[in-house]
């Protein structure tokens, strides 16, 4: 398959693909932690505590819930795309 072809030059095709996948999973996990913290953490679970902090005319929890989390979501997807493009080249699996 193409995965093997892509990395066959260094011999350990299967293990290179495994390594690439592991690196990818690590990245996904760390991004999802941020995703969870800003939305479920700041916007839902700890909203009452954060609401005691004023933030540019907002209560901080309310800001996270209605605007902040959305900004972070956009940033996360863009950062993931950039990070993965790099990883693809590192492992020579890019198109």
């Amino acid at each position: 398959m193409s995965a093997e072809k892509a990395v066959s030059s260094d011999g350990g095709a299967q293990s290179r693909a495994q390594e690439y996948w592991k690196a990818n999973l690590k990245i996904i996990l760390s991004f999802l932690v941020v995703w969870f913290v800003v939305s479920y953490g700041c916007g839902i679970l700890f909203i009452d505590q954060l609401n005691t902090i004023p933030f540019f005319g907002f209560k901080l929890g309310f800001w996270f819930a209605q605007q902040g989390s959305i900004f972070v979501f956009v940033g996360l997807i863009v950062a993931y795309a950039i990070r993965m493009n790099k990883l693809d080249e590192e492992f020579d699996v890019h198109e």
Partner: peptide, 20 residues
């Protein structure tokens, strides 16, 4: 504040879509 779920829910899903 109770409507917040729609704002986060209908945008946060794209993170799942893009990553997973």
């Amino acid at each position: 504040s109770d409507g917040t779920g729609y704002l986060m829910g209908w945008t946060g899903g794209y993170v799942l879509l893009a990553l997973l």
